[in-house]
Amino acid sequence: MHTHHAYRVWNCCLSLKYGLMGLLAEEPLHGYEVKTRFEAMLGGTWEVNIGQVYTTLQRLERDGLVRPVGPRGDRGKLLYEVSEEGRRVLAEWMDQPDSGPQELREDIYVKLLLAARLANGDLAPLLSRQKRAYLQRLRDLNRLEERARRDGRSDLARLVRGALLHTEADIKWIDELSETAISGESE
């Protein structure tokens, strides 16, 4: 499978690899242009190291997925375009739904399970602190969404909307745990 091959070879992010390829599929770009375009598409939520971009482009070139167009421009800049094979591989990735396991990356999941063991099962302080952090996050996201819409940055607004709904779900989860904690305590 292609992805297994990629796991061994690519030491960074698959969505960066395909993101760069996707932008090069629109039109040939220099390394720096594709970096700024990638960051702009993500509304500044993902800052990419320029070195990482060049390394990625070199690997894509080595694997025959992109190729340089024409001679080196001023200051040695090289224009890249996507190869036919690159377009095929990109389309394959785009058609593949994200079907892996649900990712729970934040520390709260482990903290919660530990607190149930260590704090005599008293989760209330942990839940209350976490809820506050989520509420602050929700407020920050709300402001970011309003700003993005005002500035006509619809790509960013879409991302923020997803983040907002995730945070809302996190709060529901905390509330559910708190309710169980409260009713457990009064029984």
Partner: peptide, 14 residues
Amino acid sequence: REASDVIKVRGEET
């Protein structure tokens, strides 16, 4: 806050 301080998009890391 800056967008990058509020949201972090991460690709699948190997």
